[in-house]
Every structure is written in structure tokens, then in C-alpha cells.
Write a protein that binds this DNA or RNA. Sequence first.
DNA 1: AAGATATTTCAGAATTTACCGAAAGCAGGA
DNA 2: TCCTGCTTTCGGTAAATTCTGAAATATCTT
Lengths: 185, 185
Amino acid sequence: MELSPVMESFVLHWGEMGSRWGLNRTVAQIFALLYIAGRPLPADEIADTLKVARSNVSTSIRELQSWELIERTHAIGDRRDHFVAETDLWTMAARIAEERKKREIDPTLAALARCLSDARMDDGIGKDAVARIRAMHDFLESASGWYEEIRDLPQSKLETLMKMGAKVARLEAPGKKPKKKKGKR
Amino acid sequence: MELSPVMESFVLHWGEMGSRWGLNRTVAQIFALLYIAGRPLPADEIADTLKVARSNVSTSIRELQSWELIERTHAIGDRRDHFVAETDLWTMAARIAEERKKREIDPTLAALARCLSDARMDDGIGKDAVARIRAMHDFLESASGWYEEIRDLPQSKLETLMKMGAKVARLEAPGKKPKKKKGKR
DNA sequence: AAGATATTTCAGAATTTACCGAAAGCAGGA
DNA sequence: TCCTGCTTTCGGTAAATTCTGAAATATCTT
């Protein structure tokens, strides 16, 4: 596939950003390419376009599938696997949130719980230190619980909720109480 | 500083997790140590405790300061700098969110905007591809705007908002309409 | 101002991570 | 069952990142 200048810079930017996100450059670039292509691409075409080894594409695609950000499809008369990116952005965001939680939050929560239960046998640790571990554990757990509650809301509900957020924010903003209801900052 | 077994595993776990978070191991460990210590520690004591080079501590501390997760303090009669971790978890979360947005979202948004403006001069890119870039840009921008609206809410307001979220979630949950108000799933 | 103590910078060493290309594995014909 | 086209696995290498120790810098003390 031939990349126009803008498409190329889109892909390159995603590559750089991907690193900051825990993905590696190639993985991120492949996703960007599929997203911008807007149609299923076979692995070897991806490799050609991005100038990376075919095997590298294979590995990266597996990673993208574990994030559920791309899907395998087929074309008639073509034995090769093709891949398409998820294009709905709400879905993308949800998938990313889910996966990051799974990789970042859940293991941490488990480790903290382990620390707390071990703390009983550990006479070298102070009460206040245990309390701080517990505080962190409880905080993460409640954030996690909240996320789970809203995770399955349909998009429309989420949008409602976000609007509510904005409203709450506006309502008696810190330091400047509106005197009249007409006063819309 | 002597680490008890639980304290040590807390620190080690943070080290591992930090990697998944874009921090490196040492940076994360130092933060964990300061958090669990609950009192200001001088840099050389940190180095001793974690068995890393003094210079490494210096670099890592700078990184933690850029996240505003630790603060430099002083003790009378001691010329050395001491460091304490932020212990309020809401504040911590806010700082992390702010910094991640700054590092992950803002540059991406800027790059997308650049792509969009460049797209005019690029006759190699299809209309639909431009539309997808725009969709991503707009999505990120509105998420970003929402974040900015709630970012400065006091903790109490945020908690209210989270409760609202839970309520919206419960209210006519997808696939199971409650018939009576008593029915609390 | 010189000496003592504390911090930062930096070049190279060590470690970790990403990538390539060759070989192996797996279908679906002939 | 033996090609043939496609995909995955894997050992080694290249690249990037992290860490160290020595040297430079800064700051107090006398």
C-alpha cells in the first residue's frame, strides 16, 4: 500500500506515541496503518508498507489482537489472513481502558492485598505503614469498582453522565458562586 | 533504612508495576519507598536502602519531581535534601492523570491537528481517511475537554459525581428493566 | 578562601527490549 | 501424500534504555 505524506506522518506519530503507551513502535504503527487504511490488509502488505520483517508483523498482530483492537478477516479467493482495525472510537477507548486496567490495576490490587495479609506476620513494619498500604489498596479498589459499574453503559448513557459531570463542575464552582442562574460563567 | 519483608515486597512490586506505567523501575521503587517510609528521607539513605547508585537516585528524584509526586524538604541541622512522597491518594491520582494527559494526549492531539491541516495539500489521501483522522481528533478533544472540566473539582464533588455514575448505571440496566423500585438487583 | 559535604552531569558498561531472517509448522489443493 | 503458499516460532543480533562510578559543580562552614 502506498502511503501519502499525511498518512505516513499519521502512522509515524502513532509509532512514537505507542511507546509512551506501553505498546512498541511497530505495534502502534500497524494499528495506525490499519486504522487509516479503512479496509482489511494482509500481513505481507503491512510488512511491505512499513518496511519491517514479516515475522515482526506476525508478533505485533498477535499483540493487537490481545488488546482486541484489530480483527482477522478473510477475502474470497485469497488464502491469506487480512486484518481490520476497530474504527469506533468509543469501543477503542473501552478496549484500551479494559486492557490497561487488567494489566496495570488488577495485578497491583492483588499485590497490595497480599501485602496486607502478610503484614500480620511481619513485626518489622509499623502500624502507620500498614495503614498507608491499606489506604492505597482501598482507593484502588473503589476506583476499580466504579469503573466496573460504568464500563458496560451504552454510549448514550456515558454521554449523559459526562454532561452531568460538566454541570456539577459549573454548579458553584470553587471560589466563584454564581448569584443568578442566568450567569453562565 | 531497614526494610521489613512486607515493605520490601511493596517496594519491589511497585518497581515492577512502574515499568508498565512508563516509569522505570528505580523511579517507581523510590516513590514506593518514600510512600511507605512516611517520613522525609535523604538521597543517600534511599540509595543505601535500594542498593542503587547515588547518581541514579538523583536522576530518578528529578523525574518524580516532574510528576509532582514527591517534595523536597529539609531538616534542621542537616544540610542534605530530604524527600517526602505525596500521601493523599486523590492528589496522587490527579497528578498522575494530569501528567499522563500532558505526555500522552496533548502531543497526540497536536499531531492530529497538524495532520488535518496538512491534509488539504495532500492529494494522495482519501476523503474517508481524512474523516477518520478527524473523528479521532474530535474524540480525543472532547474527552480532553471533559477531563479539564472535572479536573479541578474538590474531592467531595468528584465523589458525588461517581455516585451519580453508579446510579445511572443501575437505572434501567441494559437487558433488565426493574419493575419495582424495591428491586435492587 | 580553603576545605568539607552534598548534588548533578556524563561517558561508558550492563541490561533489557525490539527486530530480523532462517527454519519449522500448518493448512489446502493436486 | 507431497507440493505450495502462508503463518508462526525462535536464536541471535541490533538498538534502546537504565545504571554506574568518576569527575564536575554547587553550597555551606570555618
